[in-house]
């Protein structure tokens, strides 16, 4: 049970860790100063959530584990983020579609988790959901702007949807840890999230003439530790200091 809870916390925490990393790559490179600041805000919120979840994960694991050992000292196969989140910042449309898909999934997930029987998960989720509501508003507004903006922005956002939407299905594939945590009232029921997600996506897309029809899901097993080639490069950067200079205080 303890191991399952730990695994579940990794699934919850690795998504914001890897997405937060991708967003942090954009700091200083945004299309406007205002957008730069907003994207960094998202990244900061996500890393804040990661810290809460990994502090808890470290406590569950016991021994010498810390939020940093959980975040930085696993091998690639030990990371459990969905593959969607590790996809690169090809352009601003990819950044916003990736964000929107995650937010549209995560908001209903958090709505369940605030009622988790695990009091710590419930408390972390209660804090995170306020941030996620703002993230959802931000990313869905940008989807509208890009979809209903210029011909170029419509083309780019369509392209990003075609590339990224096939990864979204993985968010709903229940792993063993997710199933067990759902059964004991700690974890979210992913099957209940899916129709809400699909509805939100379609509603927003329809408003500006975007669609997801006829895109088959891709095989994606990031939550089981089988990643795309992207994650290794992210970890090479993320873990650099901890790997090059082990066992030091920073």
């Amino acid at each position: 049970m303890k191991d399952t809870l730990y695994d579940y916390l990794l699934i919850l925490g690795d998504n914001p860790l890897i997405l937060g990393h991708r967003l942090s790559e954009l700091c200083g490179h945004g299309p406007t100063l205002e957008t730069d600041i907003a994207l960094t805000n998202l990244s900061l919120d996500l890393f804040g959530q990661v810290r809460s979840l990994f502090q808890y994960a470290a406590a569950v694991k016991g021994g010498n584990a810390t939020e940093d050992s959980v975040a930085f000292l696993r091998s690639e196969r030990g990371y459990k983020n969905a593959i969607l989140l590790e996809q690169p910042n090809i352009d601003f449309a990819h950044v916003m579609v990736r964000q929107f898909l995650y937010d549209a999934f995560n908001l209903p997930q958090l709505e369940q988790l605030v009622k988790s029987k695990d009091k710590t998960i419930a408390a972390i989720s209660a804090k995170s959901i306020k941030e996620c509501r703002y993230h959802f508003r931000f990313s869905s507004q940008w989807i509208r702007r890009l979809g209903g903006g210029t011909e170029e922005s419509h083309r780019r956002v369509t392209n990003a949807i075609n590339v990224l939407y096939p990864f979204a299905d993985e968010l709903f594939n229940e792993t063993m840890a997710e199933q067990k945590m759902k059964e004991v009232g700690i974890g979210a029921d992913l099957a209940k999230i899916k129709p809400i997600f699909v509805n939100e996506i379609n509603e927003t897309f329809n408003e500006v003439g975007l669609k997801v029809a006829d895109i088959a899901p891709r095989i994606a097993k990031g939550k089981e530790g089988l990643h795309s080639e992207q994650l290794g490069h992210i970890l090479a950067e993320l873990q650099y200091m901890q790997r090059a200079y082990p066992n030091m205080q920073w």
Partner: peptide
């Protein structure tokens, strides 16, 4: 930012660079 050694340092650095944009 991507190579900050701990989560605490990463968050502080991100916030600092964001302040500069502000």
């Amino acid at each position: 930012i991507g190579r900050a050694p701990t989560l605490r340092r990463k968050v502080a650095l991100l916030a600092k660079v964001q302040d500069e944009a502000g």
